[in-house]
Amino acid sequence: MVLMASAIEGHQNQNGANNDRNIHIKGCGISKRSYLERAINEFSTSYGYFPRLSGGGATKGIRLAALGTVDIGATCRHQLIDILGDVHEDETGVELIQVGWDALVVIVNQNNPVNDIALDELKKVFSGGIRSWKDLGGADKEIHTLIRKDKNSGVGYMSRLLMFENVNFKFKETVFEYDSTIPLENNVIRREDAIAIDGISSAKKLPLKILSLDGVYPGKANIASGTYPYYRPLYLAVSKNGKTPKVEQFLEFILGPEGQRIISEEGSINLSEGKLLFDLWDKRPK
C-alpha cells in the first residue's frame, strides 16, 4: 500500500526549503503525529513563519535534510552504520539533535482480548512460529501481521535492533506491508485480527490497544525509568552545511521550555523526563 505523504501546508511559494519565511519539516510520521504538528504551528504563529509539515518516514527525513531539500528532517532512528562502523553515505551530511524519547510498542485492535505478550512470543508471531491468536489467549483466528515495508524505516530498523536483536531479522512471508505509519495504524484500527509494532508517541493518540510486553506496560513512568526497555530517541536532522537562522530558531524553540512542554503534553517523553535514559541508551548496541 502506498500513501501519499500528507502535509500541513501554510501559504507557501515554490522557492524550496530556503525561502526565508517558509519552514519545511519532513520525515518520521510518528514524530509528525506526536509532537511536531503542534510544535511547528505554535512556533510559526509566534515567529511569523509559514509551516509545512509532511511525513514519508525517517529515512527521507534524514536524507532530504542532508541534501538541503527540506529545512529539518524528523527521525526516530539514528543514522545507519555499516559493519565497519561507518555512517551510510547518504546520511553523512546531517547532524542529529535529540529532542525527546519515544518507545516501540505492540499494538492490536481495541476489541482484541489479549493484553500482554512475551518477547519470545512476539518474535514467533513475526517469524511465523505463532499464527493464531488462540496461542496467545485470544480468539481462534489467524494473526494478521502488519509491518513497515522498509526495513530501514524508524520502526522497521529500531524494532529489529531493540526487540528482535538483529537488524537483518526476516519477517515471515505472509505479512502485510505498508509504506508509512499512518496506513499501518489505520488497518490495526479496522482489523480485529491485526498486530503491529508502532511508536507509542503516535499510538497512544489513536483508538488502539497497546499491549504490555513481558508483563510491563509502556506507560510514561515505565519508559522514562527504563523499566520498559524498548525506548528510543527522537531526533531532528539538520544539514552539516550550516544552520539557517530559521532552523536555529526552531531548534532553540523545541529544545527550550515551550518546545519541551509541548513534547511532554503531547505524550512523548521530553529530555528532562528521560534524563535516566541517556546512560542506559549509551550502553546499548547501535
Results as ranks from 00 to 15, higher is better:
1 M>T: 13
4 M>K: 11
5 A>T: 06
6 S>W: 07
8 I>Q: 03
13 N>S: 13
14 Q>P: 00
14 Q>R: 07
18 N>E: 06
19 N>M: 12
25 I>D: 01
26 K>V: 14
27 G>I: 04
29 G>T: 12
30 I>C: 14
32 K>F: 12
37 E>T: 14
39 A>G: 08
42 E>T: 14
42 E>R: 13
42 E>W: 10
46 S>G: 06
46 S>Q: 11
50 F>Q: 02
50 F>Y: 09
50 F>T: 10
56 G>R: 05
56 G>P: 01
58 A>V: 04
68 G>E: 06
74 A>I: 07
78 H>M: 04
79 Q>P: 02
86 D>W: 14
86 D>C: 15
87 V>C: 11
92 T>I: 11
93 G>S: 12
94 V>D: 02
94 V>L: 03
96 L>S: 02
97 I>Y: 02
100 G>D: 02
102 D>E: 12
105 V>E: 04
108 V>A: 03
118 A>M: 14
122 L>P: 05
122 L>K: 09
125 V>G: 03
126 F>V: 10
126 F>G: 01
128 G>Q: 07
128 G>T: 15
129 G>S: 04
129 G>P: 00
130 I>A: 01
131 R>Y: 05
131 R>M: 07
135 D>W: 01
137 G>H: 14
140 D>S: 11
143 I>R: 04
143 I>A: 03
144 H>R: 10
145 T>I: 09
148 R>I: 15
149 K>W: 10
151 K>F: 11
151 K>N: 15
157 Y>L: 07
158 M>E: 10
168 N>V: 01
169 F>G: 06
176 F>E: 13
177 E>G: 01
182 I>W: 05
183 P>T: 05
185 E>Q: 10
185 E>M: 11
188 V>I: 05
188 V>F: 00
190 R>H: 13
191 R>G: 05
191 R>E: 07
194 A>E: 00
194 A>I: 05
197 I>D: 02
199 G>K: 01
202 S>I: 04
206 L>P: 03
208 L>V: 07
209 K>A: 00
211 L>K: 15
212 S>Q: 08
214 D>Y: 10
215 G>V: 02
216 V>E: 09
217 Y>Q: 04
218 P>R: 00
218 P>V: 00
221 A>C: 03
222 N>Y: 00
224 A>Y: 02
227 T>L: 15
228 Y>L: 03
228 Y>M: 01
229 P>H: 08
237 A>L: 05
241 N>C: 02
241 N>T: 04
241 N>Y: 00
242 G>H: 03
245 P>F: 08
246 K>V: 08
248 E>C: 13
250 F>A: 00
258 E>D: 08
258 E>M: 07
259 G>K: 06
259 G>W: 07
265 E>C: 01
268 S>E: 13
271 L>Y: 03
275 K>E: 12
276 L>M: 13
277 L>K: 08
278 F>D: 11
279 D>S: 15
281 W>N: 10
281 W>R: 15
284 R>C: 06
